[in-house]
Simulated scan of single mutants.
Amino acid sequence: MTDRKISRRFMLGGTGAALAMPSLVLAQEVPHRRNVMSFSPQRWQDHFDTLGKAAIVADTTSRALHYWDGDGETYNVYPTSVPRTDELTKRGYTEIVRKKVGPDWTPTQSMLEEDPSLKYMPPGPGNPLGTHAMYLSWPAYLIHGTHDTRKIGRQSSAGCIGLYNHMIEELFAIAPIGTQVRIL
């Protein structure tokens, strides 16, 4: 028989490992059923007959934008801001008709009725459209960036779909004009 002394550090480490083991085993055995951000998974086939040039589904319920390129090789999901109310949310099919780096912003008539102090804003840090904008075939509806990162993941827009500036820059680069869009 050996005369081994068990140190306090050894006992604490062994006890911690024993307590953590059930959690580690469970984490390996149970598949993740949903995304951490609670995005609802989407399939382009549920929304479009073909991918065409590319396809976007903006899901206002899960506050996520899903993008597929034309050959289906690329699938990206982006967290978004969505319209503040259902009345501001236009749903249906549209497409990207124009893209602009450094967009300027002019408030719509309904925005001015709600807040008469709103004024035209040139491109820059205070501009609510962020660094990039993709204009849809519906007048005054865009997919754009935002400098106010607190808006992402919330009902905070006047009708548009907003993304973090670095994410709209990425999407802007890969989504061509003519990309089909569905707002849910």
Rank of each mutant, 00 (worst) to 15 (best):
Q155D: 09
V82P: 08
S157N: 12
H166G: 00
R4M: 04
T108Y: 10
E73R: 15
G126D: 13
K99Q: 13
M121D: 12
Q42V: 08
T108E: 11
L136I: 04
D71E: 13
W138L: 13
Q28W: 07
W105S: 14
L65G: 05
P122Y: 04
T60N: 05
Q42L: 06
A175G: 11
V36D: 06
I174P: 10
Q42W: 02
W68S: 00
S40N: 08
Y135W: 11
P139C: 08
G72V: 01
V25K: 00
G92R: 04
N35D: 15
R154G: 07
T179D: 09
V25I: 15
A20C: 08
I177H: 10
Y67K: 01
E29H: 04
R63F: 02
S110I: 09
W105C: 11
L136E: 09
T50V: 03
I96T: 08
M134Y: 03
P41H: 05
P125Y: 08
D104T: 14
M167G: 00
H147T: 02
V77H: 05
P128V: 03
D49C: 00
V30W: 04
M167V: 00
R150S: 13
R154I: 01
S23L: 15
W44Y: 03
L51P: 01
H47R: 04
R63W: 05
K53P: 11
L88Y: 09
L19Q: 07
L51V: 02
D59V: 02
R43F: 02
S117D: 12
A27Y: 05
G16R: 12
R154A: 10
Q109Y: 11
L112T: 09
G13E: 12
T106N: 14
V101C: 04
Y120S: 05
P122I: 07
T131C: 02
I161C: 11
I143K: 09
S81Y: 06
N165D: 13
R34T: 01
V77G: 06
P103V: 08
P139N: 13
Y78I: 06
D46G: 03
T60S: 03
R4D: 04
T2M: 06
G72Q: 03
I96W: 06
A175Y: 11
R63E: 07
Q45L: 00
R182P: 01
H166A: 02
E73D: 15
R182L: 10
H32R: 11
F10T: 15
L65Q: 05
L112M: 13
D69H: 02
L136W: 10
H132E: 06
V181D: 04
Q109L: 14
L184Q: 05
